[in-house]
Design a protein around this nucleic acid. Structure first.
Lengths: 150, 150
DNA sequence: TTGCTCCTCACGTCACGTGAGGTGGC
DNA sequence: TTGCTCCTCACGTCACGTGAGGTGGC
């Protein structure tokens, strides 16, 4: 796929666009009147179709070839946009989920611990907070772990 | 919504179904011939429409009222199924993601630690495995934590 | 018998595509 | 001037809905 500028150039006059899309020029005028395709206009009021317009026209052609009328085409184009958006979001959520689960796997086999040399500072803090015995700091030995590579 | 058995009862004769869906009985015969709705049949070969059939008929009616033809309706129904399936999966993935991230939050502020009383057993194990000094077990103090509630 | 069901055939309506016809600017 | 563009109008075709007409079983 060629890269395109944000505001794509509209290079094709109606006869060429019609040829590229495999339809009659008059059909393109009808589609425009119905709001299916909005080509740009030259200063002289001639239509100019972009590459994206051509793609859209081909998509419309594909659907009408299946006997779908223009009301249906409009709805289907919208639904397909929604669907591909939902699929993209799903893809992204699945990626994030996998990342989170991998991190969970890593983190749950290691610990965010306080080194023994800090024990006095911690005990002091705990004491001043007057915690019950269940909340007293406990001493553990952490098994060796591999570092987090974030 | 009323609960329904897996094989839903088909209670409505064609005239009632047509009335419920707001269409002509003949239209329902046309829809069946085109494969849009498949009502059950009695032994005497009469059509019997289920509650789900009625819902489908109403949906079709909604679309045709917008000027969409039956080819379009068929495609749209398929797309809407796809879309709602994708959305359900997205919803589920988002839920799982949230759960994973919450767990990550919890786990990363606590530790899967070994109590101090096990230190000798661990040190013995470490020794026998002939690990390098970086992998030697270290002694930590864990700050008090709230239990994981799964 | 009545009122439904089944089916097929036919026709009115409408959307769509496209041709005709006349205009105007590179 | 030629060949495009613009537009509107009109018509052929086809899908759809539905009415008619004849059948048969609760």
């Amino acid at each position: 796929m060629a890269r395109r500028p944000p505001n794509e150039q509209a290079n094709y006059v109606i006869s060429v666009a019609a040829e590229l899309a495999g339809v009659h020029p008059q059909t393109l005028r009808v589609y425009e009147r119905k709001g299916l395709v909005q080509p740009q206009r030259t200063q002289g009021n001639s239509r100019r179709y972009s590459e994206q317009d051509i793609e859209l026209l081909r998509k419309i052609q594909e659907l009408t070839d299946e006997g779908i009328n223009l009301a249906g085409v409009t709805r289907i184009l919208q639904l397909e946009t929604d669907l591909s958006r939902a699929k993209a979001r799903l893809e992204r959520a699945a990626q994030q989920l996998q990342t989170a689960q991998e991190q969970l796997q890593i983190v749950s086999t290691r610990s965010s611990l306080v080194p023994l040399r800090d024990i006095r500072r911690i005990r002091r803090a705990m004491k001043s907070d007057a915690l019950d015995s269940a909340s007293k700091p406990r001493v553990f030995v952490a098994p060796p772990v591999t570092p987090i590579d974030q």
